[in-house]
Design a protein around this nucleic acid. Structure first.
Lengths: 230, 230, 230, 230
DNA sequence: AATGAATGAGCGTTCATTCAT
DNA sequence: GATGAATGAACGCTCATTCAT
């Protein structure tokens, strides 16, 4: 499974920068570009340092911009954070929507769905910091967000369709509970990544080693599938 | 299952305050008590506000003490945090060790073991903030800690004993992987609590309602046990 | 006595907006209008918030214009302030010049002259903030201003003419000192308005009530006239 | 008349600094001293630059202290300002209370009372800036202040006593209005000082020259006394 | 050991001003 | 001339930490 990794590109690359111009040093005066640079830098810094640890100055410097432009475009550090958060929600759900699932192979499809969160968090661990911050603050942003809470149901619906097809085809037990399976699936992927440092220390293993990662991916698939198979 | 809840007592209660002393005006507080008050206050504040969000002054005021005493007793905010963290590790592992398991009922024992982390996190959600902080900082404290990393193996051993007994008695499949089951168990308990706010928002439910909590406890037990049962 | 009140009209009214033009969408605002809008907005904001408290952005927004146009038209916040100040000087002196005084009724004329500053400040309290700012800055603008310091003498001359006519007609003492009377007259009107808040608090009265205002107007007239009457 | 001038001493002189000690450079750790230094510096800076223009850093540097100590002792810039303001009120009223008035010389006494505000503002022009700020902000501090609004009445009572004695002795008209005389008195002293810069510019004179000052002091005494004399 | 004052770096934010289109 | 993005200094305030008594 290939998961699109998060933005790793340098925040300053300006694709639409005029090439070979006479003033190669001139600052791009494009709101779009600046705003995007800040957003990208913010995602990076918030993910690395958490909300409180992230310094506005660090974000603006990373974006090769100015503190004041953060306020010009976003109004406050908190609003910037919310926008970063919403983008992250959007990304993960859109990626999940794009999973190619074979309607006639519910077991294989389920395997893909189960592994998806794990692989996604692995590739985009910044989401974990963002979600952690959000939960530390008792979800006060997500509850206000207009774009965020419309994402969960499609993801569950996809899972539901696969599960029902599996039941229909006689693979799964008739009493499967989609929502519980959904939460379990995310739990098993999230925790392994979110607590990778403490867990690695306790278990005296490097859980991020490829072998370990693959082992876990298979294990959680088997775990869930075994439990609902007839 | 009954889980000992975290310290909820007032940080200022001085059970061992000497009575009838000659200096009724003097605070006359033993070092032990002051240190403990600070530690208790720190746990409370770090859990509520996170490491960065926790203010030294807030901790000292909560402990009815002084900023400078924090430095006197603990050296720095960070060292205080580490001590809080170690205490929290110690508490959860000691509580787990104290689980009363019936050697001749591996399935029931396993059920207890599976539900334990979930119930514990539910009763002590501050642990989640502490662990989250620690993982945000890439586990830099736990790796230095002398007391922390000696706890995991006993917990795994207990699980291992139960699983092997279950295999022996013909309940579980012979190929059960203790470590994976252990991680799965903690994942399923941790995530539900750690992400209770965002998850509740996405699912448009209050996952902390008693009914939902019980549902989840049963579900994760069933999930794991079903998957390893013959 | 009727005193022309300061500009209360909406800064955005565009009386000279061309009608039925071919480009209905274009702002099509003459430079004159924009400049005037800014000037009017500046007077309002400087008067309300003082020089330091007045934000360039607030002025430009009030004028439905842009910060940069303030710099385009006026060069700096300070120069804008100076222009506001000069306009205010001009207004008060022009208004005073326009007082209709009966050459053969020096006492009645003097009464009008004495009450004038009081009534004017009452109707245009923004002048007080402007003058206060100017004095806080040790009059550094007025000393540079070309238009401002040419106004005082005509005002004094008018007073002087009235006083001399009063002496001539045997109403006033021969040794009246025009300049002192002038300053006293302004003092008595200015202070009552400039310190209306602290004074009202100290005296536990609302000095802006109509009754109190009229009382003061009569009192200061009587005070000055009594003192110079034979 | 001798008016106590405002604090002109260096904010850092520490009268109680141990002399000839071994550690002459050691920082005084006396809350009283530090607080006073800040208060004195604040009075100076607020008076010079106005409330908005006064920078917290400038105040703390002037007091040879730290920004943070301002917050430690006063809570905010605004609260510091209020304390400066209250001290200023207290000073002027206490000084006025201390005027030595001869009960049997109401005219002489009245002369002293009339000249007092003028001389006081002259010696303590910072009061004018403080009052100006306060009036710019519509008296929002004075209305909250517990100590401020208890001062005016004693000052008026003193004036009242003198005026009544003058009436009794046949010097003044029976219908004198104490409150109006009081306001007039303050007006005539205040305005001359508060608007000394703009007024000097308009009149093309240096109104602060000794001769001019004395002229004004006499003039306003005469003005008021003439107007109420029989 | 307790109490509280001192220290100084740094934080989120705002502001006047300039520049590019 | 209008529009709005960029620039960079500075501001009020907070914080972890240390020092003196």
């Amino acid at each position: 499974m290939k998961i699109k990794e998060g933005d790793k590109q340098d925040a300053t690359e300006d694709a639409n920068e005029p090439r070979g111009g006479a003033k190669p040093r001139a600052r791009q005066r494009s709101a779009k570009t600046t705003r995007d640079n800040i957003l990208r830098a913010a995602k990076k810094i918030f993910s690395k340092d958490g909300y409180e640890g992230a310094r506005v100055e660090k974000i603006s410097k990373t974006a090769k911009s100015y503190d004041s432009l953060i306020y010009y475009y976003f109004g406050s550090k908190e609003k910037l954070f919310v926008e970063v958060l919403e983008n992250a929600y959007k990304d993960i759900f859109e990626t999940e929507m794009a999973l190619e699932l074979d309607h006639d192979d519910p077991v294989g499809s389920l395997r893909k769905i189960i592994e998806f969160p794990f692989r996604y968090y692995l590739a985009n661990p910044e989401l974990i910091v963002l979600l952690g911050t959000e939960n530390l603050h008792k979800g006060k942003h997500i509850s206000k967000s207009k774009t965020a809470n419309q994402f969960a149901s499609p993801a569950i619906e996809i899972l539901d369709r696969v599960l029902r097809r599996g039941v229909e085809m006689g693979h799964f037990r008739a009493d499967v509970d989609t929502r519980n399976i959904y939460i379990a699936t995310v739990s098993l992927g999230y925790f392994y990544v979110s607590n990778r440092y403490t867990l690695s220390a306790f278990l005296n293993t490097n859980l991020m080693a490829d072998k370990e990662v693959d082992n876990w991916a298979h294990f959680i698939s088997d775990l869930v599938i075994d439990s609902i198979s007839k």
